[in-house]
Design a protein around this nucleic acid. Structure first.
Lengths: 198, 198
DNA sequence: TATTTATGACACACAGTGTATCTTAAGTGG
DNA sequence: CCACTTAAGATACACTGTGTGTCATAAATA
């Protein structure tokens, strides 16, 4: 799938490897707080991380590869928040908790959503929505894939808008709006299907 | 605003100027059909256009500037399709005609939506939605800006999905789905407001 | 037709990428 | 604790792409 990271196998347990990768990872996160992702060079990252330039390429294929790795981590983390392993609420049922998490990681999340990694985030969100039992809304009328896509992209788009328009709308207001604009309409479509069944 | 194009004034009526810009414009459009926008260099464009390398910079600040210009043109053109000057139907009322137009320009539209110009397209779409009398949906509950943003980004996202999943869904099916997922729910929200008024 | 001016053809400085090579330092595993 | 392994540092280099400066020429303009 070529989404990969490490080119030639390295001992992931070696302390030096872990340290280097953490340094690079954190350097990018720091840099991204002050300048756009585009404007950051590999040299900037290695300088900030205090790591040899060549060393970067021993771990990642390039700037985008590091971002990918970061994205994957972040997505996994978010999944945990949205769908805790226990039988807690579904993602569309605890929007407030989700928004709280997003808010506290606004910087990085916005960077990911505004970078070339955004497409991959969307893809993963669609997969997530399609996962067995996860998507509460399934319609006889509209293909599942389209339902999932619309749900994922709307949620991401609204999240982005909210994070960028800092303070215009409170967290709970936003949760309410998301309900009105996305969740309830999609629920209605799946109810519609149920009615049709009977 | 720095969205501009020409750096030092040139006589726009000079045939040479018009010819050069058209050549560059068309060269980019052609190139984009066969390779990703990212992978195209200014040299590629000037070579294809058969125009001196330096000449490019006499008209545009860089690759992105040319893309911006293209985007602006395209957006204006699309506006004409969506909102013809005559008192014809609103954009949300003639989705089929709109989709037909989009379909016939799929290559370029997808390029724009997948490039760095996408943000600007979204912005313009939001403005368009907010334009006086254009947005059929206004809600007392949800801020106009958010309504417009959700409308614009959902429409763009669904359009992108449709253009990318060639043939999975017919044009009229898609128009129907858009109605169910976006237009009707938003209409319902504005009706809700009306009811509340009474 | 005389004048203006956009263009072409170099040449150049510069920034960033990615690789190759050799040495050194620091973890690892017995 | 020490010998071995291997990741990291330093440096040099080839390469690609950007953006600018200059000057002669061709082609519009008026």
């Amino acid at each position: 799938m070529s989404t990969s990271s490490i080119i030639f196998v390295m001992n992931e347990n070696d302390l030096r490897v872990q340290r280097t990768r953490n340094l690079l990872r954190n350097a990018l996160i720091e840099l991204v707080k002050n300048q756009s992702y585009e404007s950051i060079s590999v040299r900037d990252i290695t300088k900030k991380a205090q790591v040899g330039y060549k060393t970067f390429y021993r771990h990642y294929e390039g700037k985008d590869d590091l971002l990918q790795a970061l994205t994957d981590e972040m997505v996994d983390e978010i999944k945990q928040v949205l769908a805790p392993p226990s039988d807690m609420e579904a993602p569309d049922k605890n929007p407030l908790a989700s928004l709280t998490y997003m808010e506290s990681n606004a910087d990085l999340i916005l960077t990911l959503l505004n970078s070339s990694a955004a497409d991959q985030v969307l893809e993963k969100a669609v997969e997530f929505a399609l996962e067995e039992g996860r998507m509460t809304f399934e319609s006889d009328v509209i293909p599942d894939e389209l339902m999932a896509h619309h749900f994922a992209s709307s949620m991401i788009s609204l999240l982005r808008w909210w994070l960028e328009s800092e303070g215009k709308v409170t967290k709970s207001e936003m949760a309410f709006y998301i309900g009105l604009l996305v969740i309830q309409p999609m629920k209605a479509l799946s109810n519609l299907a149920e009615i049709k069944d009977i």
